[in-house]
Design a protein around this nucleic acid. Structure first.
Length: 373
DNA sequence: TCTGGGGTCCTAGGACCC
DNA sequence: TCTGGGGTCCTAGGACCC
């Protein structure tokens, strides 16, 4: 195992909720839940299909957590304060905290709006006191993020991304946790295998059925048994991950692969009876997708449709056109052709439009016609 | 009134080409 | 006519992550 790198994972604490509390300091210390659009001030009065995106630690004490339906959460914590999501605000604070980190340590990998990996290797002195250096750097990063945003984060520092992701969660909120290869057995092995980034609910369930619950049990599981049940690729990865082995680089730049827009309706819609409403929403999604493409300066060739029915079954259809496009009408026509290939014998819960196989497109106002390139 | 919205990656079969 | 293989693109679904 390569232990020569020093990698940090930085995770903002209850990010959306904490941003809201900057504007509403009067709510500090109260159970606050963020989620949904048409919200009521009191969680217990909410009616709709929204889910929790974030909850303050005070709200989590009631057993609510992100991903939980707001209606269900309302039963657990009816008196919690409910606030609607405001992604513009969160993106603003996301840019601020990432800039603050980059000013100290430029090798940053974006992992969504509220977390990053940072390669600290060039900034620490090799040798034994390296982890002292790393801890001091982690403290600097935390202080810089707090100064730039007023927000708290948790930091994990270890020899790789996999361990750092686990470490940053060990002392949340406000933690600064260093884990070296010598600490794996005592600090990592007792954790549930599900905590490993990449082991989701399905894999965790399969592991449980094999008698594997903790990372330590996974580490001590027979490699050939894992390969038998998960295949050579995944089986080998599970084994290495449990031993804290991960050689993935910190990726500072990456190109966007696809753009999508989707919406869940207030009530399930009927393909025939609600045809007009469906058509209007469909066209609106395509228009917004087109706007996204222009803003992101990309055009795409593979246009996809996504439907979710009232039984939660999801189907997708896609079609690749001859040249990349940003055009809302062409996207609408192509996605409309995809829709004709779906049997519509159930009410529809969700409609989505996606575009992939992206290529760079000209800036708005640019004279160049990218179709000729 | 269970279960949002925006992504990435992987698998797998068939078409098609060399 | 049969056999063999590699590579890439397209499409559908699913697991997973934030």
């Amino acid at each position: 195992m390569n232990t020569s790198r020093t990698i940090a994972h930085l995770d903002m604490d209850a990010f959306y909720a904490s941003v809201e509390l900057l504007r509403r300091p009067d709510l500090r210390g109260l159970p606050v839940v963020i989620g949904g659009i048409n919200t009521t001030p009191r969680l217990g009065d909410y009616v709709g299909r929204g889910v929790i995106t974030t909850a303050t630690y005070e709200a989590r004490a009631f057993g609510v957590h992100s991903g939980m339906g707001l209606m269900k959460a309302a039963k657990l914590a009816p008196d919690a304060v409910l606030l609607p999501v405001d992604f513009e605000q969160y993106r603003h604070y996301s840019r601020l905290f990432k800039a603050a980190v980059r000013a100290i340590a430029p090798l940053v990998e974006d992992r969504g709006i509220d977390e990053i990996y940072v390669d600290l290797t060039p900034l620490v002195t090799p040798g034994t006191p390296r982890w002292d250096d790393a801890r001091a750097l982690g403290a600097r990063l935390r202080a810089a993020v707090l100064a730039a945003t007023g927000l708290s984060c948790s930091v994990g520092i270890t020899p790789n991304k996999l361990l750092s992701k686990l470490a940053s969660e060990l002392d949340k909120p406000g933690g600064l946790t260093v884990v070296t290869s010598a600490d794996i057995e005592t600090r990592i092995w007792p954790l549930p295998a599900r905590r490993i980034n990449g082991i989701g609910p399905k894999a965790a369930e399969r592991l449980t059925a094999l008698g594997v619950n903790t990372i330590g049990e996974l580490a001590n599981a027979d490699l050939s048994m894992l390969i038998t049940h998960f295949g050579a690729h995944t089986g080998g990865w599970l084994h290495r991950a449990a031993h804290g082995d991960d050689d993935r680089e910190v990726v500072t730049e990456s190109e966007i692969k696809s753009v999508s827009r989707e919406t869940t309706f207030d009530r399930d819609l009927h393909a025939v009876h609600d045809r007009a409403a469906l058509s209007r929403i469909f066209t609106d999604l395509c228009t917004r997708l087109s706007d996204d493409l222009v803003r992101k300066q990309v055009a795409g060739k593979t246009i996809g449709l996504k439907l979710r029915f009232d039984d939660f079954k999801t189907v997708t259809r896609d079609q690749t056109i001859s040249a990349p496009t940003q055009d809302a009408q062409l996207i609408r026509r192509t996605a409309g052709a995809c829709l004709k290939r779906v049997t519509l014998d159930r009410r529809i819960r969700l409609l989505g439009v996606r575009i992939g196989t992206l290529t760079p497109a000209p800036m708005p106002g640019d004279e160049t016609d990218f179709r000729l390139l």
